[in-house]
Design a protein around this nucleic acid. Structure first.
Lengths: 204, 204
DNA sequence: TGTACATCAGTGAACGCGCGTTCACTGATGTAC
DNA sequence: TGTACATCAGTGAACGCGCGTTCACTGATGTAC
């Protein structure tokens, strides 16, 4: 029984936390969901993790570092969802399923999705972040262009993928911004009712 | 010569400013463009308008009131641009021209465009704001649906307009977020090169 | 197996910051008589 | 035409806030001999 491996010494925490990095990320995610990107605070995150306000600095440098790590994880999750949705038999089916997955992710992880696009708060030189972001776009590009995915990233070949990305990205933003109603559940209902129809207008 | 009407008593300002409301809006716009939505500050706005930090309260109540007024003006400007672009002879031409106008507005008025979608910072009960926002969407809806614009706003009839809105909105966001390059001018160049092709994939 | 020591991962008090807002006030303006 | 007074549009000092970050520190861990 290697229970010691799993039970992360909950009772009467030692001076050393043992797994503070993941604990901080989890706490940060909570704070983010509850308060939104604008209300995010490092101190509150530390408070929730039961740790002093200066502890996060050891793992993330500063607030930007923590948010960057969080955004990288979010892009990785999005990439996974997109990859998992690309299993349909026809190209149209795959694109459609990915669109639904994209919007579903945005609605299920509102604050995280919001954070992912707040360029001013993130360190885009971070390798983990840019790799995760590329991976997500790559998944989408593969569904749209198949074999040619990844090529001609600045030329006309990329355009169908950008079109696809734009329409789901825009729809997700509008839904989150309350364009389809501000009551809880409105955005989800509207997405369910409209997304299929909206995607039907995309011919890539 | 009714020069007194126009010369807004520039020399040695009186105790009463005379036209503080518009002056504050202008200053706020400056601050917004320079510092972005997150860096916006009421005090800095007052400073630029050459007025005490509590002066804005008389005209806007609080920070949210000022930002709401600014967002309303931004929606009005967007609506004007969209209306002015709907002059093409064919429906496709009009939709295309509006798409270009939409993205052009976003790129030319970055911080303002950003503000327009920060629901948490704005008072959506404000009549001026919601009227201006409706007017902008109405312009788009008219280009897409013509006579039927404004009808069936929650049913399937609205879908083509939502699709159109989504694709330009998403493209604009991606461009602003630096998805097409972070150097100054990258977004504009990419928009110019890609937007036509992207819109060509929309069949409404 | 025991000991010395470097390194790692935390503490917690303190600093300075700019912020939004409140408050009692006052100067200027316009209106009633 | 003059005067009293209400109202409007500002002042500026003050408050309290939570924040991110710094700093000297210390407890725990792991490694070399």
């Amino acid at each position: 029984m290697s229970q010691d491996q799993n039970s992360v010494k909950m009772p009467s925490r030692n001076y050393h936390h043992g797994a503070l990095r993941p604990a901080l990320l989890e706490a940060a995610e909570q704070v983010l969901e509850e308060r939104g990107v604008d209300g995010f605070s490092l101190r509150e995150t530390a408070r929730r993790a039961g740790v002093s306000p200066s502890a996060p600095a050891h793992h993330f440098g500063d607030t930007g570092g923590l948010l960057t790590a969080l955004a990288a994880a979010a892009f990785a999750e999005l990439a996974e969802r997109l990859e998992a949705s690309a299993l349909g038999t026809t190209r149209d089916e795959r694109i459609r399923a990915q669109g639904i997955a994209y919007v579903g992710f945005a609605l299920a992880r509102r604050a995280k999705f919001d954070l992912m696009w707040r360029a001013a708060l993130l360190d885009h030189a971070d390798a983990e972040l840019s790799a995760a972001a590329s991976r997500a776009f790559r998944a989408l590009d593969e569904a749209v262009r198949g074999e040619e995915a990844g090529s001609d990233m600045k030329g006309p070949g990329i355009i169908p993928s950008i079109a696809c990305w734009s329409i789901v990205h825009g729809f997700a933003h509008l839904a989150l911004d309350g364009a389809f109603g501000a009551e809880p559940g409105d955005a989800e209902r509207a997405a369910e009712a409209m997304l299929g129809g909206v995607l039907a207008h995309l011919k890539v």
